[in-house]
């Protein structure tokens, strides 16, 4: 039985530097449908349009064509901060997802109020702290005793784990992970991926995860898409995905993308 459609991208076009010699078509009529509970990994070479796709969904700018429908609502022209009510986001740069000059608990309190009207009520109530402590202890990073520490003093891995918590806090309709482990050392990256898996499974979130690591792309999620020149060229799911190997993927890529295989091979593997 198919789950309900959670995200529908139709004919998304995004051009950068339109009308100049540097014009680049980053998304070229992109179509994508995600069902509720899908955990999709996204791979592709540099400039394939992976991050641009996530930005089109999150609303960093207006798309030049196409529609973004999230859980039945057309959000194509909604400003970024309003879309954030439905979206959880973790960025590649660990500095990006948290406010460094604010305490851990203040960051969590901001996330717990995402999409709610801001008032003159206290920015954080005492009763919230117990909940935050419990959430943090589940990460297993020892952050539960450091609620009032400035986030700027945390390591990249800790910040990404915290950003994940914040992204998942308000049960987003869609979680967007933009190479969120790429800036971490391998051991920390593995830990953050493990936390990612756990949060997505426990809360049954729908997620899009960009990664440069093909093994990760195969090992995680129930569906894998590969992008090339602003479109999706490979889309595998279920059992077929589980059986994939890195070699399979490279073969599929070279067939689908034609002659540019050798250029992108290094980037992909």
């Amino acid at each position: 039985m198919e789950n309900k459609v959670m995200l529908q991208l139709t004919g998304i076009v995004k051009k950068f530097n339109a009308g100049t010699v540097n014009e680049k078509v980053a998304l070229n009529g992109l179509d994508l449908t995600l069902h509720e509970g899908d955990f999709v990994t996204v791979i592709g070479g540099n400039g394939a349009g992976k991050s641009t796709m996530l930005n089109a969904i999150s609303g960093a700018w207006r798309v030049d064509g196409g529609t973004v429908v999230l859980d039945g609502q057309d959000i194509t022209s909604l400003p970024e901060y309003k879309r954030s009510i439905f979206l959880g986001r973790v960025f590649q740069d660990p500095m990006m997802g948290t406010a460094a000059d604010m305490q851990i608990e203040e960051n969590l309190a901001l996330a717990s109020r995402r999409g709610k009207r801001k008032t003159l009520a206290s920015g954080i109530r005492k009763a919230e702290r117990a909940g935050y402590r419990e959430m943090l202890s589940e990460l297993g990073l020892g952050l539960e005793d450091r609620l009032s520490v400035k986030v700027g003093t945390l390591s990249g891995g800790q910040r990404q784990a915290l950003t994940l918590l914040m992204a998942a806090m308000r049960e987003p309709k869609l979680l967007l992970l933009d190479e969120h482990t790429a800036a971490l050392d391998p051991k920390t990256a593995a830990k953050v991926l493990e936390i990612t898996d756990r949060i997505i499974n426990e809360r049954k979130l729908t997620a899009l995860m960009i990664t440069h690591n093909m093994k990760d792309a195969i090992a995680h999620g129930n569906r894998l898409i590969m992008m090339h020149e602003g479109r999706i060229i490979i889309d595998v799911c279920g059992e077929e995905k589980q059986k994939l190997t890195v070699e399979d993927l490279l073969g599929m890529f070279s067939k689908a993308a034609g002659g540019e295989f050798s250029n992108d091979r290094a980037i992909l593997s």
Partner: peptide, 27 residues
């Protein structure tokens, strides 16, 4: 004031605009 929800949102805006918008704050 800077301990209220609005105050915290102003502080977050100054600290990290991208994060603030991702957390639904109208920067």
């Amino acid at each position: 004031f800077f301990g209220t929800e609005i105050g915290c949102a102003i502080r977050a805006t100054g600290c990290n605009g991208v994060m603030s918008r991702a957390q639904g704050i109208n920067t």
